[in-house]
Amino acid sequence: ENVFHPVECSYCHSESMMGFRYRCQQCHNYQLCQDCFWRGHAGGSHSNQHQMKEYTSWKS
């Protein structure tokens, strides 16, 4: 089941984030949609070496 997250992806700027959401544990307010995370995208001061937390629902 695809879950809708009402936040913007920090890389592709999609405002309709579906599926899993990934939030960086080091960068303030840096979040990736499932597609950008799986493709290994990073931007700004974010590094792929940073720990990311996976969210499967909006409330989590």
Rank of each mutant, 00 (worst) to 15 (best):
E15G: 08
P6D: 13
Y55I: 09
S45E: 13
S16M: 10
R21C: 08
Q26E: 09
C9Q: 00
S60C: 05
W38A: 15
E1L: 01
P6N: 12
C12M: 00
E8V: 04
H46P: 05
F20D: 14
M17T: 13
Q25S: 07
Y11V: 06
V3P: 13
Y22E: 01
E15I: 12
C9S: 00
H41L: 10
H50Y: 02
N48M: 07
K59E: 08
F4T: 13
C27N: 00
C33N: 02
H41D: 04
A42N: 09
H50S: 02
S45Y: 02
S47K: 12
S57V: 11
P6C: 07
D35R: 09
M52Y: 06
W58S: 12
Q34L: 03
H50G: 02
N48Y: 04
V3A: 09
F4P: 08
W58Q: 08
C12D: 00
W58Y: 14
N48H: 06
Q26C: 04
G40F: 06
N29P: 03
H5T: 08
K53S: 08
M52E: 02
S16K: 11
S10K: 02
G19C: 06
E15D: 15
Y55L: 13
S57H: 14
Q51H: 04
Q49M: 07
C24W: 00
H41I: 04
G19I: 05
T56D: 15
H50T: 02
V3R: 11
F37M: 13
L32T: 12
R23P: 02
E1P: 09
R39P: 02
H46C: 03
G40K: 10
M17P: 11
S57Y: 03
R23T: 11
Y22A: 08
S45P: 10
N48G: 10
Q25N: 08
G40S: 05
H41G: 04
Q31S: 11
S57F: 03
V3I: 11
T56L: 02
R21L: 12
N29I: 04
N29V: 05
L32D: 03
C27E: 01
H46R: 06
E15T: 12
H28V: 13
N48F: 05
G43C: 10
R23H: 15
C36S: 00
M17I: 12
G44D: 13
N2P: 08
V3L: 13
Q51D: 14
Q31Y: 10
G40R: 06
G19S: 13
H28T: 14
S57E: 12
S10M: 04
T56S: 14
M52I: 04
C12I: 00
Y11F: 12
G40H: 05
N2T: 12
M52L: 05
Y22N: 03
W38P: 07
C33I: 00
K53P: 02
K59W: 09
K53N: 04
T56F: 01
Q25T: 11
E1F: 00
E1D: 12
H13L: 06
C33V: 01
H46D: 06
V3C: 14
Q49E: 14
F20E: 15
H13K: 10
L32M: 01
R21E: 09
R39K: 15
W58V: 15
H41K: 13
R23G: 07
H13D: 02
C36K: 06
V7C: 11
R39V: 06
Y30K: 02
Y22V: 09
Q51N: 08
L32E: 03
N29L: 08
D35L: 06
S45Q: 08
E1K: 05
G19K: 14
Q49N: 12
S10T: 07
H28Y: 09
Q31V: 13
H28L: 11
S47V: 06
V3F: 05
Q51C: 07
N48W: 02
R39C: 09
C24R: 00
Y55T: 14
Q25C: 08
P6M: 09
M17H: 14
V7G: 09
Q26G: 05
H5D: 10
Y30M: 04
V7E: 11
F37E: 08
V7I: 10
Q51K: 12
D35P: 12
T56R: 09
V3H: 15
G44V: 05
G44K: 06
F4S: 07
C36G: 02
H13M: 08
C24I: 01
W38I: 15
H46Y: 02
E15A: 10
S16G: 08
G43E: 13
C24T: 01
Q34N: 07
M17S: 14
L32S: 04
H46F: 02
W58R: 13
G19A: 15
Q49V: 10
Q34T: 06
N2Y: 10
F4M: 10
W38T: 15
H28G: 08
V3E: 12
H28Q: 11
R23C: 15
E1M: 03
F4W: 05
Q51M: 04
N2H: 03
K59N: 12
S10F: 04
M18Q: 15
S10D: 06
G43L: 05
K59L: 11
V7P: 11
S14P: 01
Q34K: 14
E54V: 05
H46E: 06
P6Q: 06
P6G: 09
C12R: 01
E8C: 05
E8Q: 07
F37Q: 11
H5K: 10
Y22C: 03
M52V: 10
C24F: 00
D35Y: 11
T56A: 12
Y30G: 02
R23F: 10
C33E: 02
S47C: 08
H28C: 08
C24P: 00
Q51I: 11
G40L: 03
R21W: 10
M52K: 01
N2V: 08
C9R: 00
Q49P: 05
F4Y: 13
F37T: 03
S14C: 09
S14F: 01
A42T: 09
F4C: 11
R23I: 09
Q26S: 10
Y11T: 06
Q26D: 15
Y11Q: 05
M17Y: 06
Q26P: 02
V7R: 10
Q26I: 11
Y55M: 14
G19Y: 05
L32K: 02
K59D: 15
C24N: 01
S14G: 08
A42I: 03
R21I: 08
C27V: 00
A42K: 05
R21G: 07
F20V: 14
Q51W: 02
N48Q: 09
S10W: 01
K59Y: 08
K53Q: 12
